[in-house]
């Protein structure tokens, strides 16, 4: 061995400062601690994570922390404003709706279904879309790709909401139906974005290298393609999560969403629409909850995408 490893110093400079990458297998506790540290370095991601943590805790503890059951009516306290306004009461922190139900309690109880429906739908869409997108892109130009592309085109021609309406309309609204329908109709954007990635990845030398080694196609897709489409998938998933919340709200608005007595944010928001002029708080607070949650998910998604990319590690 005439030459010693080159650039030993350069490599260690890159690896040393942030702490990470000193050794890949440092025990899972160390990994968690390291991840947590990078999380705290990003204020947006930290806020996002806190908000989501709050959402999850709220969802789990809803029966215990909610001031009232969500459907409980207080006929003498109808349309009360939030407590800091004239006429508000600290008994109903965010005010009440037209039936005297506590807005805060309804938001607290709505978290659970809203997050579950949107979240599970995103997972269904992602699994479907990424699988189809990877296969379609890997065999771009083949018969499978052609079929998928036609389906994508067809889907682009019909607004998703219309499709969902038709399906729900014919099957009847329920929480499970809604989740599945949202999930099944949401694959298209995943498939499209992922396919575009795969088509360019496929031409990269490391994929050719794997082929020259004799790697089988399924292994190649799992080992070489899939990890490299994760950034795209995460970005699409965060967007899609937000879209799902909004679609769920829109469906509730049309009366085809989740049926009472189950409460969702979209449903509460929808109930407030008749009172926008007189009792704006009914629609505003669930709306705010949706906005904040979607933003939090996006912040977290950005961070996650960076963290999962080994090339980004040196930056933190």
């Amino acid at each position: 061995m005439t030459q010693q490893p080159l650039m030993e110093n350069e490599t260690s400079t890159k690896a040393a400062p942030g702490g990470p990458a000193v050794s890949g297998s440092g025990g899972s506790a160390a990994v968690v601690r390291r991840r947590l540290r990078t999380l705290l370095q990003s204020p947006a991601a930290t806020i996002g994570a806190l908000v989501l943590l709050l959402c999850v805790l709220t969802a789990l503890l809803a029966p215990f922390i909610s001031p009232y059951p969500p459907g409980q009516q207080h006929p003498q306290d109808r349309l009360l404003p939030p407590f800091w306004l004239e006429g508000g009461s600290t008994e109903f922190l965010l005010g009440t709706d037209n039936l005297g139900r506590d807005i805060l309690s309804r938001i607290v109880h709505g978290v659970q279904v809203t997050l579950l429906v949107s979240g599970i739908a995103v997972i269904i869409s992602a699994v479907l879309g990424v699988t189809l997108g990877v296969i379609s892109g890997f065999y771009a130009g083949g018969w499978f790709d052609t079929i998928i592309q036609r389906l994508v085109d067809a889907n682009m021609a019909i607004p998703n909401i219309l499709l969902i309406l038709v399906i729900i309309g014919s099957m009847g609204p329920s929480t499970v139906t809604l989740t599945v329908v949202l999930g099944v109709t949401g694959w298209v954007i995943f498939a499209r974005m992922v396919r575009a990635d795969v088509v360019s990845l496929r031409e990269r030398d490391f994929v050719r290298a794997a082929r020259s080694i004799g790697t089988r196609d399924p292994v190649m897709m799992m080992r070489h393609i899939l990890p490299n489409v994760m950034p795209t998938t995460i970005v699409v998933a965060t967007l899609s999560f937000g879209t799902n919340i909004v679609i769920e709200a829109s469906l509730s608005f049309l009366g085809l969403g989740i049926q009472p007595p189950t409460v969702t944010w979209g449903y509460v928001l929808n109930e407030g629409r008749d009172y926008l002029a007189t009792a704006w708080w009914i629609a505003t607070f669930p709306g705010l909850a949706i906005t904040i949650t979607v933003l939090a998910i996006m912040f977290l998604g950005d961070w996650l995408r960076d963290v999962l990319d080994p090339r980004e590690k040196k930056r933190s």
Binding site: Q3, L6, M7, N9, T13
Partner: peptide, 21 residues
Amino acid sequence: ESIPGAVPTPSKMPTGCRFAA
């Protein structure tokens, strides 16, 4: 003939001659 090692990175420039190593 080959030059062992590689160019130092800007963040870790040696104080003396940069080729010394």
